[in-house]
Design a protein around this nucleic acid. Structure first.
Lengths: 337, 337
DNA sequence: CACCACCCGTATAACGTTATAGAGGCACGG
DNA sequence: CCGTGCCTCTATAACGTTATACGGGTGGTG
């Protein structure tokens, strides 16, 4: 069915290798023959068979982006950026959904795609340093998001502890004293621990007490869980006057619970999230958030992975902390008002 | 680097072909040798090289899902379903973002992935029947979303006209008379025309006049545009008492504009969208919407594509209309209140 | 004029699979 | 005892590329 190099070669009256060289520009080809070959290519509508190319080259041209949930707009936005960047480097990006499942993460880390992909960009949730070190697959790995350190792989993340500090400081600055944290998690969710640590440290440095009853644990980082836990907090003996949420989705769930309970935001309860998803710019009230530089994270992750795959980058593994900034919106009171 | 069939064959003391047969189960293999081969596979940790397999089989194992925007939660949710379904059939799904750009759509439809993918699931925005008919690529194509008809390809969509009817009927039923439509579009956006037609027809059958000044055109189907156009409508001489939006994103933008203007929803203005994205279940107010069966659309699209690829399905092309239902939420007043 | 260097092009061997044709052994019926 | 057929297994030819080694001209140089 397809037009192959052979067809082009016959038509142009040259050898296979020459056509290949015209296509790849790997070796110089004389002006005259190049013309003829190019013309044959155009006429027959040739495009290379990637399976064959990849077989020969030992690469597949595919890279995977493994994220815990596609439905989380943060990851959808990140994926869009990564797909674009990958295409720019001649790679196709495939998405892998780990659903924040430990088994799925282990499988992916170490093999399920072993011969399918040239490299992996991975946002781990459930696994840590030991599991990453135990990996046997030999394709390059770039980690995104915090939680795993001191491993021989490139790593791109924001400083979660510092981000939490910024959020809490902002809430303190607008006069809040009883600041809750929604999104603490059980054992293996590393980044939840880091954001929690930042929360706790920032409270201390602001001279505020840490109150365990103001920390809400969630099973997942979803709107639903944000709503559920916010309701619980409101029903407690001494409800908070501010909420710092693990991410924007939880924050939006919290906003919903607050609206249902008839609480005014930010007057009664102020809310801050992390991620700066588009949704938070249009919610009522709009959501104050810590905005990571998604563009930078997505592009950098792809670039470093590609560099490793192609052997351009041989330096030791690198950890990059990308910048973030606080974006004030209505949920903590706009600067003007 | 990789372990190949050859390595397994040597270790197990059998031929290449036998190992291949054990792996694929294509031909029966004796119990004894099967054991030995399987053991060798386990010991050496073999996994097949997909590039080679695909080259040989003439298929890549990749299918593409081309959508206008990954950032639109509707498509993100659909993508997640399709990825899962594809994996279940042994295919890897790659996402293609057309950004609702005509050139990008044409390119994709007809070649950019010609040798990369076995089939394409396509949600066209800018192209119509003629362009689809002019396609030269020979891989199967499944269309999703409305707008292109009478082409020799499977096609899965909801009935946009009927969906619009349902939305308008609901608004009429709760007593609205001045119903606006946000999301009309210029020339080539087929589904916008269909939803607009349903809007117009439903008005007529409800005995309401069609008022051009209540139709708002948007450049894209985004929250931002929903907000902008809603503002314009509110500023007009005789603002609407209800809004039917092309999709939930626009509806959410409209909700935001209404909130900023101090309008009560649904008392002053009721709002209905289409898509049933998660976001609309947590917005304030929650959003009444027409819910397509995304699970069905995503799964069916993949299944039919795979059937075409593998030649299982040889029947003439089929158009399937998947069900939808109206979900009443706060933005049109809950049934109880 | 012989030699080397160079440029442009060719022939060919991989890459790891799978499908096809066929070889060897064994049982069975004639 | 031989042909026939089945059941396992093997040898091998593709699939479409790219990389390597090589050949045949041309021009410059000693």
């Amino acid at each position: 069915m397809g037009v192959s190099l052979k067809d082009i070669a016959e038509r142009a009256g040259v050898s296979l290798a020459t056509v290949s060289n015209v296509v790849n520009g790997y070796r110089p080809v004389g002006e005259h023959t190049r013309r003829r070959v190019q013309q044959a290519i155009d006429e027959l509508g040739y495009s290379p068979n990637l399976s064959a190319r990849h077989l020969r080259r030992g690469r597949t041209g595919l890279i995977a982006l493994a994220i815990p949930e596609l439905n989380n707009p943060y990851f959808a936005e990140l994926a869009e950026i990564a797909i674009r960047e990958a295409a720019g480097h001649g790679y196709t990006l495939v998405m892998e959904n780990t659903a924040a499942d430990r088994q799925a993460e282990l499988l992916l880390l170490d093999g399920s795609r072993r011969h399918t992909i040239d490299g992996l960009i991975f946002s781990p949730v459930r696994i840590g340093r030991d599991e990453v070190l135990a990996r046997t697959a030999d394709s390059p790995l770039v980690l995104i998001g915090e939680g795993v350190y001191d491993v021989p792989h490139d790593h791109i993340a924001i400083d979660n502890v510092a981000a939490s500090h910024a959020a809490i400081q902002h809430l303190v600055a607008i006069g809040r004293r009883r600041i809750a944290f929604i999104g603490a998690a059980s054992g293996d969710r590393q980044s939840a621990h880091l954001r929690m640590r930042g929360y706790r440290e920032a409270l201390t440095s602001a001279g505020l007490p840490f109150r365990p009853e103001l920390v809400a644990r969630t099973d997942e980082f979803s709107r639903r869980e944000g709503m559920r836990t916010m309701r619980d907090l409101l029903a407690s003996a001494d409800p908070p006057d501010a909420v710092f949420a693990y991410n924007d989705l939880i924050a939006i769930g919290a906003l919903r619970a607050l609206a249902e309970a008839g609480c005014r935001v930010p007057e009664d309860v102020a809310v801050v999230g992390i991620d700066d998803i588009e949704e938070g710019r249009f919610s009522s009230p709009t959501l104050t958030t810590i905005a990571p530089d998604k563009e930078e994270i997505g592009r950098l992750a792809v670039r470093r992975l590609v560099a490793r795959i192609e052997g351009t980058e041989v330096a030791a593994s690198l950890t990059v902390q990308t910048p973030f900034r606080l974006i004030r919106r209505e949920s903590t009171g706009t600067p003007g008002s």
